[in-house]
Structures are given as C-alpha cells and as structure tokens.
C-alpha cells in the first residue's frame, strides 16, 4: 500500500478500483497545503467527471434520502472493474467552537443499496478557511481522475454553505418538503436563485400541491426579474417521495435534460470555466490575505504614528514589492 506521499501510485490504485486508495486521496485533497497541491499537480491533464450534480435544501427535507436514491439509480450496479461510476460527497458543518463534526449523511442515504456500488464520502465543512469551495473542487477532480463519471455533492442547508454549490456543480437540485411556507423559506434562503431544478420531497404529505403551486408562481413572477440561474432555462418543479423512491426516476430524467441543455447551448464549458476562474480568484485572495496577515503581525511600533489607512497602504506596498 502506498502511504501518504505518492499521489501517482494512489491514483493508479484508485483507478484500478481500490476504495482505500481513493479514500486516502480524498483525505489528501481535504487536508489542503503542499500535499494537496502536489496531488492537484499530478492530476493535471486527467479528465474531470462528466457531470457534477449539486443537491441543496434545508435540514429535514429528505435530501440525503433523495441523494441515496439518485446515486443508486445513476450507478445501476457496479462496473466489472475500476472505480464506481457514481460518487457522493456529503458535506456537513463543523462546530465553529471545536472544529469537530458529526457526519451522519451515510445513514440517511436509504435506498443506496450495496455500499460498494457508490463511493460515498462525508466531509466536514471545516469553517471558512477552505469550506465547500476549498476541498470539494479538488476532491471532485480526484473522483474524475480515477474514472468516476457522475459526482453528486450534497450540502447541508445552512446559510451560505449551500449557496457555494453553484461554484462546484453543473446542475443544482434544490429540495424542499411539502408543507406550508416551505416555498417561501426556500425563496428567502436564495435557493431559487441557484436551482436548476426544484423538487418537493415528501410529496405524499398534505401541502405538496400547495408548495408546487407556490414555487411555480414565484418562478412566474421571477421571469421578469431574471429569477433562476439562466433566463432561458425555467427550472422544472418536480415531486418525489424519496423514502419510497417515487418520482426519483423522473427527477433524474429532468436533471439529465438540464445537462443536455447545458451541452447543447455550450453552457457546460462556460460554467466550468467560470468555476475555475472563481477558484483561482478565491485562492489568490487566500494567498494575499495570508501575506497581509503576516506583514500586519510584523508591523513595528512606528505603526502607532501612522493612521490605519496609511499603515494599510504601506502593507500593500510591501506585499506588492515582496511578491514574485
């Protein structure tokens, strides 16, 4: 077994079907720093996954169950050799106080069937440094590099984390549950603006038809104000009962149609290019922020004589002069 250091060997093992090697590679991707950079370098030239699907929604709407069903349906069993066709990355928040996390999405993925058919990895958000936009893009590249065709990224519906999904996924599915006011809550949370598809889960419950109608009305109202991620794609509103599997095949078909539309209109490449620019920009800001922090920490007593603005400008000049 290749321990740690050698990404090429691990990539080869994972491509041949080693779960352990793939698990280790994602740990490296998650850990950031020089080892993650080395891994990223080793993957240059390898293909990414064919399709990245994001699933967002508030806690309790049945996201994980839905994810499990979609993943099992997409996998349709296991290839004779090599890595599974489908992988899931499930992101949960870390405790802001201790950095720890309880990652429970695996057990929520009912209907996933044989755990060997789909590669499932739980990730903690690990706070602002990195977060969804940090480790997930590298992990997605790893999965694509070893032969995974479809990656489903599921994120917990807390605040900004779920909106970062647009910087990761090709197709975003926003899940709601049937109930009074859920559509309004989703709208307030900004879900409608990132969603390519909307799904009302637990549709066997009272209120499902109301939620669908509310969403359609909001979309109607939104066409005038460019609601929705793209003006020529109107997000379809679907219903599912994920626990029973009802409507899941239809949801997958609709998501597939979105992917076909992205390709036909040349948007898939553009979205990916935008995401790459976003990642480069975010990393550049991280680098600069780090340098600024170091220089601010090193400021001498003379800084007391300057105004904060003057001192800040001096820091910026130093950073510019010191850069390569």
């Amino acid at each position: 077994m290749s321990e740690g250091g050698a990404p090429d060997a691990l990539l080869a093992e994972a491509t041949a079907g080693s779960r352990r090697a793939l698990g280790r590679l994602i740990t490296i991707a998650e850990s950031g720093g020089p080892s993650a950079d080395a891994l990223d370098r080793a993957m240059v030239g390898r293909p990414g996954p064919g399709w990245i699907v994001g699933i967002v929604g508030a806690p309790g709407v049945g996201k994980s169950t839905l994810t499990g069903r979609l993943a099992a349906g997409a996998a349709g069993g296991r290839p004779a050799e090599g890595a599974p066709r489908v992988a899931v990355i499930a992101v949960d928040p870390s405790s802001p106080l201790t950095g720890g996390a309880i990652l429970g999405d695996r057990i929520r993925m009912q209907g996933l069937g044989d755990p060997r058919d789909v590669f499932v990895r739980s990730m903690a958000h690990r706070g602002a440094a990195g977060g969804l936009a940090g480790a997930v893009p590298i992990a997605v590249r790893v999965l694509g590099a070893v032969g995974v065709e479809v990656v489903i990224v599921e994120t917990v519906g807390v605040g900004q984390i779920e909106l970062e999904i647009v910087h990761v996924a090709d197709t975003v599915i926003a899940a709601l549950s049937a109930g009074w006011g859920d559509a309004i809550q989703a709208s307030k949370a900004g879900l409608l603006e990132v969603a390519d598809l909307l799904v009302v889960n637990k549709a066997d419950r009272h209120g499902a038809a109301d939620a669908v109608r509310d969403l359609e009305q909001m979309l109607d109202a939104g066409t005038a104000t460019a609601l929705g991620p793209d003006e020529t794609w109107r997000p379809p509103v679907l219903t599912t009962v994920a626990t029973a599997g009802t409507g899941v095949a239809e949801l997958w078909t609709a998501a597939t149609a979105h992917r076909a539309w992205l390709i036909a209109t040349d948007r898939l490449a553009r979205r990916r290019d935008d995401r790459r620019r976003h990642e480069i920009g975010r990393r550049a800001i991280d680098i600069l922020a780090h340098e600024v922090d170091q220089r601010v920490a090193a400021l001498g007593p003379t800084a007391a004589a300057a105004t904060p603005e003057e001192a800040a400008r001096r820091v910026v000049r130093q950073v510019r002069a010191g850069g390569d």
Partner: peptide, 10 residues
C-alpha cells in the same frame, strides 16, 4: 410498508 432506517443522527 417498506423498512425504516433511522435518518436522524443528532
């Protein structure tokens, strides 16, 4: 009826 799996972990 189907089978129940506990979804809540917290």
């Amino acid at each position: 009826f189907g089978t129940y799996t506990e979804a809540a972990i917290a």
